Computed example of a mutant assay.
Amino acid sequence: MILDLRKKSQITIPKEIVEELNLQEGDHLEIYVKNGLIIIEPVAVYSKSYIKKLEETVMRLYEEPTKYDVGPFKSVEDAINYLEEIDEENDKNENEKER
């Protein structure tokens, strides 16, 4: 597939690729050069506070449950689900404060 470089160095990602990768408006993409090739790949962007909470939570995997009010988690997926629930609750609380 050949693309044209437009004004202001812009390109359009073909619809077929967008659909194949299930990309959505607002998704983040990283672009870099590797061995003379331009690489564009989807990335997830998380806040520093989310990453810190993730690190703390992952450390609880298989630890003594009486040391914490949450956990231990049986898998990384369980830990991530827990973090996403907390993140959703925080977003909800922030939205309520803004009203």
Score class of each variant (00 low, 15 high):
Y68L: 01
D4G: 15
Y46F: 07
K48G: 05
K8N: 15
T12Y: 14
K92M: 11
N35V: 01
D78A: 09
P14W: 04
E55M: 02
T66L: 08
I86T: 11
L54R: 00
R60L: 07
E77P: 05
K74E: 09
E64T: 11
E84L: 10
R99S: 08
S9I: 06
I31R: 01
V58F: 07
E64M: 07
D27K: 09
L61E: 06
D78E: 14
D78P: 01
N90K: 14
L23R: 02
L61V: 13
A44D: 13
I11Y: 07
M1R: 04
K67Q: 13
K97E: 15
E25H: 05
N22P: 03
D4F: 15
N90R: 13
K34W: 07
N35G: 11
V70L: 04
V45N: 06
V70Y: 13
K7V: 05
P42G: 05
E56P: 01
L5A: 09
M59I: 03
E94W: 10
E94D: 15
E85W: 05
D91R: 09
V45D: 03
E30Q: 12
K92S: 12
R6T: 11
K48H: 03
E55W: 00
N90F: 06
K53M: 04
K7A: 08
L54P: 00
G26S: 12
I80D: 05
L23V: 03
P42Y: 02
E41C: 00
K15Y: 02
Y82A: 05
K48F: 02
R6Q: 14
V45P: 01
Y68E: 01
N95F: 10
S75G: 08
D87N: 15
E88R: 07
D91P: 01
A79T: 00
K8R: 13
D69F: 07
Y82D: 06
P65N: 06
T57P: 01
L61P: 02
V76D: 03
L3H: 12
V45I: 13
D87S: 15
K74W: 03
P72K: 05
E16I: 14
E16Y: 12
M1D: 04
E89V: 15
N90P: 02
K74Y: 03
M59A: 08
P65D: 05
I2N: 04
I39H: 08
K74S: 05
L29T: 09
T66R: 11
L3C: 09
L54V: 02
E88S: 07
T66D: 10
E16H: 10
V58L: 12
I11L: 09
R99C: 04
P65C: 07
K53F: 01
Y62A: 13
E25N: 11
P14C: 12
N95C: 08
K15N: 04
E64I: 10
N22T: 11
R99Y: 09
L61F: 12
K15E: 05
Y46E: 09
S75E: 06
E84P: 04
L5C: 07
K15G: 01
E56W: 01
K34C: 11
E89I: 14
R99D: 08
K74D: 05
L54D: 01
S75T: 08
